[in-house]
């Protein structure tokens, strides 16, 4: 199977406290070098808690943010200029908040026409035909085209967002928390639609979410992000069921599950490490019950066969 998306040591560092003269006050490593390969047709789930760098990673992948290092390859071709218009034809983005990702002062038709006109240079007739085609694919009625975004419910607005991403005819979609703003009954509709579209159009998904159960239900493989690094990656059915990294285990144990008694897997209070002053060695060390001496000195690397974990004391 060919590789749809390849990241090689992709990283992002933000400069904080820029001064007119002299060096900046500090640097935040939002994403530590990430190396990943996503085969064509796969759904790769990316989970992590707030501040773990998942949105920064996603924005780099579509060219909205310039990487500080590393490279992105789509279908074997490198993309090194951060120009969203070039990225747009090959990789598209579905936003978390369906309403705020649609311009309130434009009709749905105007919103849908932009990628067709700008990326593919279609004329009016071609555009109308293509819009009808896409709207049929996402189960939206064509009478919606002349309405404004505020007239739609969250679920409908998210379908419009998906329709816009499809209009660019990119083969890879970055889904950034696409259902977390939706009600559960609508959430399932959108997830099923995404699965159906992927099947029919041969798409590749990067599915970013903080909801472990949703990620597990839709992904082939799952990558767990902690403090800007991938700490574990493996097949979706294994990662949470049999975690290797202690952090993945903590996540899995924390998720509320029907029929499991209520426990706080982490008794004492813990806060994320300070990004301005990152700890030496493994970032999870302070919260980890298995941490040893080596964890404080070296940063562990991702290792393993099918289920890779960045840990010196993996759980299995």
């Amino acid at each position: 199977m060919s590789i749809a998306l390849k990241l090689d040591a992709l990283s992002k560092t933000f400069v904080v406290g820029k001064q007119l003269f002299g060096p900046p006050k500090g640097r935040v490593h939002a994403v530590h070098p990430v190396t990943l390969e996503v085969p064509e047709g796969e759904t790769l789930g990316i989970v992590g808690e707030s501040g773990c760098g998942k949105s920064t990673l996603a924005r780099m992948l579509v060219g909205l943010l310039e990487p500080s290092g590393g490279s992105i390859e789509i279908a074997g071709k490198p993309l090194d200029n951060a120009d969203p218009a070039v990225f747009g034809k090959r990789i598209q983005y579905v936003f978390q908040d369906p309403i705020s990702s649609l311009n309130p002062r434009k009709t749905v038709r105007q919103i849908m026409e932009v990628p067709l006109k700008r990326l593919h240079g279609m004329d009016k007739a071609q555009r109308d035909r293509r819009i009808s085609e896409i709207f049929a694919q996402v189960n939206l009625r064509e009478e919606f085209l002349d309405r404004y975004p505020h007239e739609f419910s969250g679920g409908q607005a998210q379908r419009i967002g998906i329709a816009r991403a499809l209009a660019a005819e990119a083969k890879i979609l970055i889904l950034d928390e696409p259902v977390s703003a939706l009600d559960v009954s609508v959430q399932a509709q959108v997830l099923n639609l995404l699965a159906e579209l992927k099947q029919r159009l041969g798409l590749t998904y990067l599915f970013i979410s903080h909801d472990l159960a949703v990620v597990e239900a839709v992904s082939d493989r799952v990558a767990v992000l902690y403090f800007g690094s991938v700490v574990e990656i493996g097949r979706a059915e294994d990662v949470f069921a049999n975690p290797r990294h202690p952090y993945t285990k903590l996540l899995a144990d924390s998720a509320p599950v029907v029929g499991r008694p209520l426990t706080a897997p982490e008794g004492r209070e813990t806060e994320l490490p300070d990004p301005l002053n990152p700890p030496k060695g493994c970032a999870f060390r302070a919260r980890c019950p298995y941490a040893g001496e080596r964890c404080g000195e070296e940063v562990p690397r991702l290792e393993g066969e099918t289920q890779l974990a960045a840990c010196f004391h993996p759980l299995r």
């Binding site: 679920g155 009954s185 399932a188 099923n192 699965a195 597990e216």
Partner: peptide, 24 residues
């Protein structure tokens, strides 16, 4: 029943979800 079926639960692996059609 159908609302419970909509919600994926951790530990059940990849699968299709049973959505409720329509809106409240």
């Amino acid at each position: 029943r159908r609302l419970i079926a909509c919600v994926p639960e951790l530990g059940e692996g990849k699968r299709a979800l049973h959505a409720i059609p329509g809106l409240p």
